[in-house]
């Protein structure tokens, strides 16, 4: 690992000015991706800006109109949170499916999103929740719908000197949802395919990971399902539309063909669960 200068800003303002001063700096949050990249020489930052102690990035706020998850909140803080685990079990399932307990004690939800991996596990429930990314930068704050946030593999709308301060969503965004993850091994594995399927009244929200350059909503499927009763035929048809909407690749984890079949199967099965459990 190369040498660097280490900063531990106490405010967002301080953080952003450090970013502006050091163009080759890296933000350190949970560090579970950054430190591996530094070890492998894939990233050689001149400066490390450790943001995880900034007070504004801490905590989970459960309000009547908004749920807010701070930018430094870890995966385990999410699923250990009594209200979140009661109200949003699918989000907690997704957070719990990331890495090992040791990783989840460090890795943050914000980091998972900012990395913009096609298979970011927490992205799919948050896409279904129509979450909003809150940022702070040289030009003040911004709110970016998660749906627009991902641009391509490892590319987001985040500006160079911007920091994600948190993620918010409406408490009543969904009536119910199901998170599904397929991986090679039972635990501590990357998704072969992951998905969240949610229902709000007669509307459905469906998001998939590992089937396209970014995690994405399947709007065509959602449109098809709107106000429909989830009969066997409807579920099967939805699965077929989904198969035609996604564009997975083949890699060491699975072939494109298998992923396509799994997209159809897990969507069909998740819809069945929604239908069964009302």
């Amino acid at each position: 690992m190369e040498n660097f200068v280490y900063y531990k800003p106490q405010t967002l303002k301080e953080c952003v000015s450090l970013l502006e001063e050091h163009p080759d700096a890296a933000l350190l949050n949970g560090g579970t991706d950054l430190i591996i990249q530094m070890r492998e020489g894939l990233r050689i930052p001149t400066d490390i800006i450790d943001i995880k102690n900034i007070p504004d990035l801490q905590g989970i706020k459960v309000g009547p109109d908004e749920i807010f998850i701070g930018g430094a909140v870890t995966m385990s803080q999410v699923y250990d949170h009594p209200e979140l685990s009661k109200l949003f079990p699918y989000l907690c399932d997704a957070a719990r499916s990331v890495g090992s307990i040791q990783i989840r004690n460090r890795a943050t939800i914000a980091g998972n999103l900012v990395n913009a991996s096609p298979l970011a596990d927490t992205a799919t429930p948050l896409l279904c929740l129509e979450a909003v990314i809150h940022t702070y930068g040289p030009n003040g704050t911004r709110e970016i719908p998660l749906n627009e946030f991902f641009v391509f593999v490892r590319k987001t709308l985040l500006e160079p000197n911007e920091v994600v301060t948190g993620i918010s969503f409406k408490p009543d965004a969904l009536d119910k949802a199901v998170f599904t993850k397929l991986s090679r091994r039972n635990e501590v594995d990357l998704s072969t395919v992951c998905c969240s399927v949610g229902r709000k009244g007669g509307e459905y929200r469906i998001a998939f990971g590992s089937v396209a350059p970014t995690p994405l909503r399947l709007l065509d499927v959602e449109a098809y399902l709107k106000d429909k009763e989830l009969t066997d035929d409807v579920r099967r048809e939805a699965a077929e539309i989904a198969r035609g909407t996604v564009s997975p690749i083949s890699d060491v984890r699975a072939s494109k063909e298998y992923r396509l079949d799994m997209v159809a199967n897990i969507l069909e099965d998740a819809l069945a669960i929604l239908q069964k459990e009302g």
Binding site: R184, R185, N186, E187, D189, L190, V252
Partner: peptide
């Protein structure tokens, strides 16, 4: 070797 790491060469965990 396309998978020279525990990320993509999986050995059993306690869950298996």
């Amino acid at each position: 070797v396309l998978n020279p790491s525990f990320v993509d060469y999986k050995i059993p965990t306690s869950e298996d």
